[in-house]
Nucleic acid binder design. Structure first.
Length: 338
DNA sequence: AAAGCTAGCAACCGCCCATCA
DNA sequence: TTGATGGGCGGTTGCTAGCTT
């Protein structure tokens, strides 16, 4: 018995993806859509296993991805959602357009965990550490148990209301997560008492579980659109139409024309330099630090953060980036069809 | 300036589960 | 029911950049 490995691993390449491999994968997905991943490497001419291709696409090459550090708002959403869902990173990621489960998991483990601990909050239970040590050691013993609790909560919510805005999520979550919402800088007691404060999380429950509407912001500050809708919105908001024949003089920076994207991918001119830095196969990180692509997501959802970033003026490499910014991605949702 | 240390992140692995034919 | 496949998750590895000594 046992399942076949996703690849036989013999002669398959591992390690960081090169620009050439990315190009092949992107080209293939663009042409054929996302089909049987096991067949993708063969058909795309890649010496990778299907799973590796899928992960590369999902976590890095997808057009609707946002790059860079999570904003404060996103981070708070992650904390709120984690309190609700536990370590179900993909679920959490589904509430954060442009973010992947792996990215959120990494961010959680490297940033948020420390942050919460520093604040005296148990990242597992979202309770103050002082009380956690006493009453929830058993909870802390297994994340799965905690996750089960969250499952029950979510199941309870979904069972009682469908496509219905409920406010009782605060009550439900307050029992198991005394500290989970609002700004992380607020005193804990105040948070517990002010569960009705406007900064508490407001949850929309639908058939899929729940949708976070308000995580410390008013509802109209949080995009309630699917990524595709946002993409289409962004694309359609641009006056220019995609024209693969249009030429461009620069592939790496300060371009706002969708055609540049195609050139960057060498879909038009095979000799054109690929959009990430040529040495990125070895550098691995900080790939987008040298461009200043306009960020569609920022423009849609994070005016406050953008303002803050502008004020602080961080290095470009720390600004959220889309891999292929939406306005460079003229394919809408069609590429998903096969 | 160079070596050592550390943090962050992309990528991978192994296992598991859900779905579908 | 079974096997193939896609996908999720926790954990880990390896590389790079930045910081410290």
């Amino acid at each position: 018995m046992g399942r076949q490995p996703c690849c036989d691993k013999v002669g398959l390449k591992k390690g960081p993806w090169t620009a050439e491999e990315d190009k092949k994968l992107i080209n293939f997905i663009l042409t054929n859509g996302q089909c049987c991943w096991r067949a993708v490497p063969k058909l795309a001419g890649l010496l990778r296993c299907g799973k590796s291709c899928r992960l590369r696409w999902t976590n890095y090459l997808r057009p609707d991805l946002k790059r860079g550090l999570l904003s404060d708002h996103e981070e708070q959403m992650v904390i709120d959602l984690h309190a609700q869902l536990g370590n179900r990173w993909s679920k959490i990621a589904s509430h954060l357009p442009g973010r992947t489960d792996n990215e959120i998991k990494n961010h959680w483990n490297t940033h948020i965990k420390k942050k919460l601990k520093k604040m005296g909050v148990d990242p597992l239970t979202h309770k103050p550490l002082s009380t956690v040590t006493d009453q929830s050691q058993s909870q802390s013993q297994s994340q799965s148990q905690h996750q089960q609790n969250q499952d029950d909560q979510v199941a309870q919510q979904t069972g009682t209301a469908s496509s219905e805005v409920i406010d009782q999520s605060k009550e439900n979550t307050a029992e198991t997560t005394s500290f989970q919402s609002s700004s992380v800088t607020e005193p804990k007691d105040e948070l517990a008492e002010n569960s009705n404060s406007p900064t508490s999380a407001l949850i929309v429950v639908d058939e899929d579980g729940m949708e976070l509407i308000n995580s410390g912001l008013s509802t109209d500050e949080v995009p309630l659109m699917e990524p595709q809708e946002m993409m289409m919105s962004v694309v359609s908001s641009f006056p220019m139409s995609f024209d693969a024949t249009t030429s461009s003089s620069s592939s790496s920076s300060s371009n706002s024309n969708p055609s540049d994207f195609m050139q960057d991918l060498q879909l038009i001119d095979p000799d054109f330099e690929y959009w990430p830095p040529s040495d990125y196969g070895s550098s691995g990180m900080g790939l987008w630090g040298d461009d200043d692509y306009f960020n569609g997501w920022d423009s849609l959802m994070d005016h406050d953060d953008r303002d803050r970033k502008q004020t602080v003026d961080p290095p470009l490499s720390q600004c959220p980036k889309t891999v292929l910014d939406q306005e460079y991605w003229p394919f809408g949702v069609d590429f998903c069809e096969n």
